[in-house]
Design a protein around this nucleic acid. Structure first.
Length: 428
RNA sequence: GCGGGCGUCGCCAAGUGGUUAAGGCAGCGGCUUGUGGCGCCGCUAUUCGGGGGUUCGAAUCCCCUCGCUCGCCCCA
């Protein structure tokens, strides 16, 4: 029979890795809650329409990357390709915006049907925040700083923050038309990809990787010249505030972002240690989205961090193996049961206890005890059961010592044993 | 969807047409049936992702297929 395997682009996280995930998750949770963010959990599955309406029909995400299917009730459903749309939906559905502000975070899997490569999977995980009802450049800066600080406190180095303003949606529309007209005149000088994008998504031509296209764009109309006064002012203000916060940034006039709902501030945090998928965190302002999805006009700002990419940058520094305090060596039917009873009691005292239930020889069990790196071996065999005692032996990882001290405790004196272990644990 | 690279034991790997497919790690058993780390001994792939073909003979050559991987597009 052929060996079954996971679907392409769907990745298992194995023991050893899960510890790193847990560390990142708990640090993030703490970091966000200190800043007043509350967690929201939305379903993985939504009505397809939600995404096509919010992300944009013509975007790559919607036009070719969604996992969609028709369910038994004849509804078109889609596995969420990103988090924002669903959060907005939930927030509207439950009237969370009636209170005015909301600062929310979420974490979980997203799905996009793409060819997997470094830093890209079909099921991947995002940690994101969404803020509603705040509209000042200061709030943009604060939310950006929260992402920046989270990445810094995880000690990720070599990050670059890039920002741009996409202007109000009207500005962008005007610019888009102007750019398309101009590019049509120079159509022959464009690279093949850009030629195709001219119809579908012309703004994306701006960050084309083709050298000749980039050279050509030097002469093209610039988005910043189309920003209305208000937009220009708020972008300048944002830059001032970031400088004041001592967060280094680069203005990247070509930073466009692929989702339709962005307006005004857009930003990305990238790292050159990631291969060609360099973006760890991306986000921006989406003042039109809530209205678009049927709510009363409410400004929004958010970002998402790709957790797989984050983990790639993290190294092994936060990786901590589970090491037992006590490894319980036992042999014989009565001893086995006593050992189990004892293990439960020790665990209740917050000790990490590994119980050997192999029934193997003492020699074998000690080998495993040693390899587990446990501090103590607790020995329980027929002799001990008969004498009503347990033996405790310190394990040495470096040197063989012929004078290993064994401590013997009466099995009726479990409190003595536990306080001994706990004392030792504290002083270690 | 389009390119490039790669697929030999749980993991790392040697092997590029010729007798039984190296080696290391891990695992298991033993030396040591109640005491670990070191050491020594033994065991663990009828088979080289799968299917065809060429050949007296294929892990090695050819074709197809599947998978992985890196890149393009795009994004976290």
């Amino acid at each position: 029979m052929k060996q079954l395997q996971s679907l392409r682009g769907m990745v298992d996280v194995l023991p050893g890795e899960t510890e790193r995930w847990q560390a990142v998750e708990s640090i993030s949770r703490e970091h966000l809650s200190r800043a007043g963010f509350k967690e929201i959990r939305t379903p993985l599955l939504e009505v397809t329409d939600l995404f096509s309406r919010s992300i944009g029909e013509a975007t790559d995400v919607v036009s070719k990357e969604m996992y969609s299917f028709i369910d038994r009730g004849d509804r078109s459903c889609t596995l969420r390709p990103e988090g924002t749309a669903a959060v907005v939906r939930a927030v509207l559905e439950h009237g969370l915006l009636n209170k005015g502000f909301q600062r929310l975070w979420y974490c979980g899997p997203m799905f996009r049907y793409e060819r997997p490569q470094t830093g890209r999977q079909r099921q991947f995980h995002q940690l994101g925040v969404e803020c509603f009802g705040m509209n000042s450049p200061t709030s943009d800066a604060e939310v950006i700083s929260i992402a920046w600080d989270l990445l810094s406190c995880l000690r990720i180095e070599g990050l670059v923050l890039e920002i741009n303003s996409l202007g109000a949606s009207l500005d962008r529309k005007k610019y888009r038309d102007e750019l398309v007209d101009w590019l049509k005149v120079h159509f022959e000088k464009l690279d093949l990809d850009s030629k195709q994008r001219l119809d579908t998504n012309p703004l994306r031509i701006l960050d084309s990787k083709s050298k000749q296209t980039q050279d050509l764009l030097q002469e093209a109309p610039q988005l910043k010249d189309f920003l209305c006064e208000e937009s220009t002012q708020r972008f300048l203000a944002l830059q001032e505030i970031l400088k004041h916060l001592k967060i280094p940034f680069k203005v990247n006039p070509c930073l466009v972002r692929g989702l339709d709902y962005y307006s005004h501030t857009a930003f990305e945090i990238t790292s050159h240690h990631l291969g060609s998928q360099a973006t760890v965190c991306g986000g921006g302002r989406y003042d039109g989205l809530v209205g678009e999805l049927g709510g009363s006009p409410t400004s929004g700002f958010g970002w998402a961090i790709g957790l797989e990419r984050l983990l790639m940058l993290l190294g092994d520094s936060i990786h901590r193996n589970w090491i037992p305090d006590v490894y319980v060596v036992n042999r014989g039917i009565k001893a086995e049961i006593s050992a189990l009873v004892l293990a439960r009691k020790l665990r209740a005292f917050d000790l990490r206890v590994q119980l050997d239930s192999s029934g193997a020889s003492f020699s074998k069990q000690f080998k495993r005890a040693d390899r587990s790196s446990a501090t103590w071996a607790l020995v329980l065999g027929d002799d001990e059961v008969t004498n009503g005692e347990v033996r405790l032996k310190r394990l040495h990882s470096n040197k063989m010592s012929s004078t290993v001290k064994e401590h013997i405790f009466s099995s009726s004196d479990l409190e003595g044993l536990m306080s001994f272990l706990l004392d030792e644990k504290v002083t270690r």
